[in-house]
């Protein structure tokens, strides 16, 4: 393999993982944009989405399905996890956050951390269920293999650089979702209401916008994006575990802050940057330094450009 081929290969890996991180980061940034909460449970909601996908895969025996049916199976997992994660995120808001709207931001944050722990432990419990896909549930905390049900042929034929169906799938799922999200936020009635609540929730209330319902929908959409991401992540990386939400969540949170929290394009840019930095660090430094580099970037951003790459530099408050 030539040097440039290695670089291109790492770039493909980095961009693919970056798109997944971006999709999770969008959930952080949307919720932050509307109620100024870092929803710490978001990464764990993502993790539970992956567990649901594996459960569906096992329960229906998708591994034995024909290629066409496997494709249908992927769609089914995407839909199932998106609805589940969206619903779960909506429920967290309804139960744990809504009554704290007028409380201090710190109370809200502590509540979010609590939700994160609860979800992590639900994942631990889920991994212990006696199912074949969880290796009988003997070791609940152990990482679970997520079967490779997308084909692994190199679409570039004999080239040393590999692009597989899994890489293609990542882009085919994430890009339409991102475009759809931008259209929703900028063009739809709900999107207008979301932006209005984000800018001035009292003024929005006075215009007759049902603020709590709009916030709830924001949690649902952010959670659903996390659900889509969880299936793509699992099919791409083929290992899931109850602590993956923390890892992926930290990457996505860093991406959101790097891009400028509250900014949708910022979250995507941040996600791609973090994905590529990870891939390059794994290749050219050593993978044990990767976390240090990623969080080093977070610290530098917080010190020198707290508003992020694409965030607004001034805060607009009346």
């Amino acid at each position: 393999m030539q040097d440039y081929e290695v670089f291109v290969q790492q770039l493909i890996t980095g961009l693919s993982n970056g798109m997944i991180i971006a999709l999770i980061a969008l959930g952080y940034t949307m919720v932050y944009g509307i109620i100024e909460l870092i929803n710490f449970a978001h990464g764990d909601v993502f993790m539970l989405g992956a567990f649901l996908a594996l459960t569906l895969l096992g329960a229906f025996g998708m591994e034995a399905w024909s290629p066409a049916w496997k494709f249908a199976g992927v769609i089914m997992m995407l839909g199932g996890s998106a609805l589940f994660c969206g619903g779960l995120n909506w429920t967290l808001d309804r139960v744990a956050y809504r009554s704290l709207r007028k409380a201090s931001k710190l109370s809200l944050l502590v509540s979010a951390i609590g939700c994160s722990f609860i979800c992590t432990n639900l994942g631990l419990f889920w991994g212990g269920l006696p199912m074949g896909v969880f290796a009988g549930g003997v070791s609940a905390a152990a990482p679970k293999d997520f079967p490779q049900i997308t084909p692994q042929t190199n679409l570039l034929g004999e080239s040393a650089i590999r692009i597989t169906q899994a890489d293609v799938m990542v882009f085919f799922v994430t890009i339409p979702l991102m475009i759809g999200l931008v259209l929703l936020v900028n063009r739809s009635r709900l999107g207008r209401a979301m932006r209005a609540v984000a800018q001035d929730s009292t003024a929005a209330e006075l215009m007759g916008i049902p603020v709590d319902r709009v916030i709830g929908m924001t949690f649902f959409i952010g959670g659903a994006l996390g659900g889509f991401a969880s299936v793509v992540y699992s099919l791409y990386n083929n290992t899931i575990g109850f602590q993956m939400g923390y890892r992926a969540g930290m990457d996505a949170f860093t991406a959101a802050v790097l891009g400028g929290i509250g900014s949708l394009p910022g979250a995507v840019l941040g996600g791609l940057t973090i994905g590529c930095v990870r891939a390059m660090s794994d290749q050219y430094l050593e993978s044990r330094w990767t976390n240090t580099i990623v969080f080093g970037i977070l610290v530098l951003i917080l010190i020198f450009r707290p508003s992020g790459l694409l965030g607004s530099t001034r805060r607009e408050k009346v």
Binding site: R192, R195, A196, Q199, D200, L206, E316, V318
Partner: peptide, 8 residues
Amino acid sequence: GRRVFARM
């Protein structure tokens, strides 16, 4: 204070 949505 009017409270228009400034970024819209």
